[in-house]
């Protein structure tokens, strides 16, 4: 096959008429670059230069681009990295980010897996339910975050002091009150004086709600391509549903599961706008701004004042994402079947 092709090419190159090959003529060599020109110019300015510049800025202590234009010089060294790592705020944002990651990724993956398996097992209303479960994807995470905030919010002039009259404890608290049978029951979820734990619970609920549609889409797509014969064989053998799930469904789906877990972790480490949606720019309940700040928020906070430190933090974030992805790939290589 290759030999035939070679002969053909040789024949063409020998043929008279100037063009060696109908595709590659002297002008054509330039033509590709003309087509690519707009993309390449923009990529050089907004993608390639930032990569180089971020590395450079991270090595210049307390670098500030505006001061640099004014003629200031900056010391070269690793101080940005050591400063960032030793900063108590950094440990706090790293802790919050990791906490949200290790809770939301397993919960949403497990839930999406169960929902997908259930969806795959039914026929009537399947498309309808599938559409409903995809709906949260086509929303604005800030806008719907505001809806969640309204649902968890205590209405009235609740500022955290105990003698204040609460007008409405919010729909979630009302429901909890209804189910626990205690009408006066309420938890201060996100208002002033709320605890870190309750803030995190609200964030986990919102992030999981937001993460489900994509995971269901991928997992259901994978399920539909699993060969039905495996299930029929299991049925003939009288295998229980639970066993079928763990021994057939999960192994057959393992590549898709690995995919949603990896993208879930990458997205989780970049969590930011869902928190802005619920808590606003202050990234925390009233009176405790920045309490729920994340890695990305930390980078943006430093972007104006100290680009050097922001660059160092961004590179650390990149490093963490890379390591987590590699670990995930390593684990899935051992676990993913076929």
């Amino acid at each position: 096959m290759n030999a035939v092709k070679d002969v053909k090419v040789k024949n063409k190159s020998k043929s008279p008429g100037g063009s060696k090959n109908p595709i590659v003529r002297s002008f054509d060599k330039w033509k590709a670059w003309i087509y690519l020109l707009p993309a390449i110019i923009l990529l050089l300015i907004f993608t390639v230069w930032p990569i180089i510049n971020t590395l450079r800025m991270s090595m210049l202590v307390n670098y500030n681009p505006m001061k640099a234009v004014g003629g200031a010089t900056f010391k070269f060294g690793f101080e940005n990295f050591t400063k960032v790592v030793s900063y108590p705020k950094f440990k706090q944002v790293l802790g919050t980010t990791m906490l949200l990651c290790v809770t939301t990724v397993p919960i949403s993956t497990m839930l999406a897996l169960i929902i997908s398996v259930c969806l795959n097992a039914i026929k009537p209303f399947k498309r309808f339910l599938q559409t409903i479960f995809f709906l949260p994807y086509v929303t604005n995470s800030i806008a719907i975050g505001m809806v969640f905030a309204a649902m968890f919010n205590i209405v009235g002039s609740f500022l955290g002091s105990s003698n204040e009259a609460i007008q409405s404890a919010g729909i979630i608290n009302n429901m909890l009150g209804f189910f626990t049978g205690n009408k006066d029951f309420y938890i201060n979820w996100i208002n002033a004086g709320s605890s870190y734990t309750s803030n995190i619970i609200v964030m986990i609920i919102y992030i999981v709600w937001n993460a489900l549609p994509f995971k269901i889409l991928i997992l259901l797509g994978g399920l539909q391509s699993v060969n039905k014969q495996y299930y029929e064989a299991a049925k003939v053998d009288g295998t229980s549903r639970v066993r079928t799930f763990w021994r057939i469904t999960v192994p057959m789906l393992s590549p898709m599961i690995a995919y949603v877990v990896i993208t879930g972790f990458i997205g989780g480490f970049k969590e930011y706008s869902s928190i802005v949606g619920i808590f606003g720019d202050s990234m925390g309940p009233a009176g405790d701004a920045g309490r729920l700040n994340t890695m990305v928020g930390f980078i943006y906070d430093a972007i104006d004042s100290n680009a050097g430190r922001a660059s160092a933090a961004a590179l650390i974030l990149f490093g963490i994402i890379l390591i987590v992805t590699l670990i995930n790939l390593w684990v899935s290589k051992k676990r993913v079947h076929y």
């Binding site: 971020t54 943006y300 922001a310």
Partner: peptide, 28 residues
Amino acid sequence: LEFKGKNVLFAGLLATMMIPGELFTITN
């Protein structure tokens, strides 16, 4: 189209997809 370095360029472009956007934002 055929041109020199096509595959290298394309692989390079794909590699940039791995980098988190925040890293570009600071310089941009």
